[in-house]
Amino acid sequence: MSQKVLIIIPCYNEETSLPLVLKEIGTIKLPNGFMMEAVVINDCSTDDTKNIARKLYTTVLDLPMNLGIGGAVQTGIKYALANNFDFAIQLDGDGQHPPAEIEKLLLAQQNTGVDIVIGSRFIDKQGFQSSFLRRLGINYFYLLNRIFTGNYIFDSTSGFRLLNRKAIAVAAVRYPDDYPEPESLVIFAKAGLKIKEVAVNMRSRLGGKSSIQHGASLFYIIKVTIGMLFSFIRN
């Protein structure tokens, strides 16, 4: 029996990049034994994201309120849980995560049997490397992750991830609202799930805006630190 893979595409005003991303997803071929479905989560976009996705025959989960990236991704995870998917892969609608790299995540999971695979920019240092400040923050999170979970995660802010059934079940119950990536790693580690990173190529975004603007980065770091600390302390 083939295994079901859900591609979760959280979108907030991504009408320029979404058609390209969906087209690319349409062209990729998964290894034998995998079936793929893509779902676009429209986080209450003010542009035409919803209709564009519908026109391209993609399932759309249309949120009535803007929940932020965490709430949007969790909607997709709940969909995966409800529809009995074996794997869920988050792929941002802005085009930073090349769909061609999905296979790498799946193969890494198949080969190692871990619960979460993170597509990382920093293992091979290929492709888009992000700004200096952002990398500084990422180093800081690397340290925090080592302290809180004992895991050596280089790219803990990467949203390009694969979750298996166990991880889906955990994330459907608890997933942070804003800036969820580093904090969710603590939640997963606490649940006893195994995490692995694989090197992928990322691109600069094709369109739209980052959810983290410059002035917000300090707030981001503080919020995530508190979030990670308390996720660590919590039972």
Partner: peptide
Amino acid sequence: QNNIRNLSQEIALLKERLDK
């Protein structure tokens, strides 16, 4: 806020099922 998030997600999932 938590309740609203859960409700929104539930509504999105239900809308999708209804559409289908």
